[in-house]
Every structure is written in C-alpha cells, then in structure tokens.
Amino acid sequence: MVRQLDILAAAARRQAGLVSRRQLLAYGITKRQIETRTRRGEWHRVTTGVYDLRAGSESVDRFDHARLRSAWTGLLATDPHGIAAGACALALLGAWGLPTSLRPEVCLPGAMHTPGAAGVTVRRFSKPLELVELHGRRLASPVTALIQAVPEWPRDVVVAVLDSALNRGLIAAVDLERIRTGVRGRRGAAQLHPWWPLVDGRAGSPVETKARLQCLDAGLPPPRLQVPILDATGWPMAFADLGWLRTDGIWVVVEIDGRSIHTRPEALFRDRARQNAIAQAGGYLLLRFTAKDVRERRIANEVAHALRR
C-alpha cells in the first residue's frame, strides 16, 4: 500500500497534484479507501472523478500551477478519452501570456450532447481535430488550440500568446494565416482584424509584449525589438527588449525585468554587468522597468520623455 501511494504521489506531481478515479482504481486503491481518505480530508475531490492528493506539484510558479491544474482537471475528468482544448492545451504545451484563470476545457469524440463534469467545458467539433501527444495524453495542436481560444480573449492576451507561440516555436510564421483562416466565422473573430499586424515573435516575454502595446496606445512610434547593443568594435554584446532611435542618433532602449528570472542572485550580477556595459558603450540611453511598471502602465510616459530630451 505504501508503494502504491508513493507511485500515485509521483503521478500526481506530474499532473498538477491531481489524479483520476480511474488511475486510483488501476493502482489498486479500492472505492472504500477513496471514500475514507476523502472523508478524512487527506484527499480532496475536485470534481467528478478527479482527486487532489495534496502531493505538491512539479510546477513552481503559482499562476502556472493554477493553469496546469485547470488543464489536468479537464483531462482527468474525462479520462481516458478527453482531449485538452483551447487555452488548456496551450498551457500544457508551455505557451506564455495566458489568462491567469482558465476554465477546464476538453474535446470528446462524439461529444455533441455530453455535458461534462461540473466546472468542465466540453467543446464540440464536427470534423477530425489536429492533435499532438504529450506524456501519453492527447491535446489539440497549437494551431487548433489557438483557433479555439483567441476569439475569446482581449487584445493584450491575444498578441502576447501569439508572440510567445512564435517565440517558443509552437507555431511558425506561416501558421498565422492558418489561424486567421480558422477563426473566420467564429464569435469574436471580427475584433481580431486590427490585432494581427501587432504579432511579433521576437518578443521575449508577455510583459515585453504588453509594454510594446502600451507604448503604441500612447502614440509612440513602433519600437524595434531585440535592439543590438554594439561594443567599440561593432560587435553585439547584448540585446535590449525595445528601442527607439532619436533624431540625435541616440538609442532609447528599454529592458523589462521579469520577477521570476531577474530576482535570482546570478541574474542580478549578470544584469548589473550588462547595464554597466551598455552605459559604457555610448550612444544608448537605458531605461529599466519591472513587470509592476507594466501593470501600472508607467513605461510609455517615461519613454516619451526620453525621446523628447
């Protein structure tokens, strides 16, 4: 029994802390044992057929954990036939910039009249889906998942997720046209028309995308992304997230520090050396911001002031 629980705990850690009733029974846990542990509060019933073993998770970031938990809830509630769909498929595939809170959603073969477990959305589809497999589970392909999800999101999320999908290699540039074609006729597709030209796979993070969009909203010229910082020999020694060339030949460059990366000790030393190198290079005015600055929409005003100087 101890070995069974250890194996289940390991499986749960791979599944955002969750297991399905089917998995419990397959590992020899009886229905009575499931009921007893749930009644005692050792396990928690998330929805029909899904249990939280309180085994922790391999995910570190709490927002990533919440998204993955939603994705796994849908899959495990429809175990073994569920297919992760929309934003949940994208979360499992590692896309960035997704909404903080996701509703579990799946596709089921022949699911035209299947209501799904409490809190789980079952998507309908009339023709075969393009699928990929991850750890033995079926997911909507990145292109299919984006077609399902983007008409439902606001602009900043749409652009950030598409940027990250390109940057992380989940889709290629040619796939954008497939996604545009695929969303036609769907509710919310009309709002997407002015947003497609804003997508840029060079963006290194969602906060970079949001900062760029805020600057455009403020009427600033479109920035250059990944601006090379050249040393005295003309060799790139760093790349800034965003940059604008002033009329006096000075580059106003912006660096945005993501909290999870740039607060690590080794990153602080690297960032300090990088900032010093940029200051000594000449020809660059460096502005550094944090994710909090993006949330509070401070960046555009400071960039505008630097461009006027």
Rank of each mutant, 00 (worst) to 15 (best):
G86W: 12
E255N: 06
V158M: 04
I250M: 03
M1E: 15
G119F: 02
R103A: 13
A111F: 03
G136I: 10
Q280W: 14
H135E: 14
T233M: 04
A117D: 00
L285W: 14
D61L: 07
L93A: 09
F63Y: 12
S205T: 05
R39W: 14
A279E: 12
A160G: 09
G182M: 06
Y284N: 13
A145S: 09
F289M: 03
R13P: 03
G110M: 01
G97V: 09
T233Y: 06
V158G: 11
E302F: 14
N276R: 09
P228Q: 01
R3A: 15
G41E: 08
S59E: 11
A277W: 02
H44N: 15
A16K: 01
V60M: 10
E152F: 08
H44I: 13
L134I: 09
Q191R: 12
A95D: 06
W244S: 09
L75M: 06
E35R: 13
E133D: 08
A173N: 03
L102E: 07
Q4L: 06
H135T: 08
A9R: 12
L24Y: 11
H135Q: 13
N276C: 09
N301G: 12
Q275R: 14
V227N: 05
T38K: 01
A306S: 04
T73N: 01
S126F: 10
R22D: 10
K210Q: 13
R186Q: 12
R259I: 07
V161Y: 11
V303S: 08
L108E: 09
V143E: 00
G283L: 12
A165T: 07
V2E: 15
R124W: 01
A55M: 08
A55L: 11
L93I: 05
G282E: 07
A149V: 00
D61P: 00
A118T: 13
R137F: 09
D61N: 11
G243P: 00
S20G: 11
L220A: 05
R14G: 10
G41I: 03
T121Q: 04
L8P: 01
E133T: 15
P99S: 13
G116L: 00
R184E: 13
N167I: 04
K292N: 14
P223V: 07
T48S: 14
A277L: 11
E266I: 05
S57A: 15
I179S: 08
T144Y: 03
Y51Q: 08
T114L: 10
A145E: 10
K31R: 14
K127E: 15
R212P: 02
L18F: 08
E130P: 03
R274M: 07
R186I: 05
V132R: 10
G136T: 02
V60L: 10
K292Y: 15
A203P: 05
H65S: 05
T263K: 06
H262V: 00
C107P: 01
D52C: 14
I147R: 03
A91T: 06
G41F: 00
W153F: 13
S260C: 04
G185L: 03
A240E: 04
Q214T: 04
R297S: 12
Y27M: 08
L213M: 08
G17A: 09
G249Y: 00
L166K: 02
L268M: 13
L285T: 15
L287W: 14
R295P: 09
V199D: 00
V252E: 04
Q4T: 15
L307P: 07
I171S: 06
T100C: 04
L146I: 05
I29R: 07
P80D: 15
M112C: 05
R137E: 12
V161F: 07
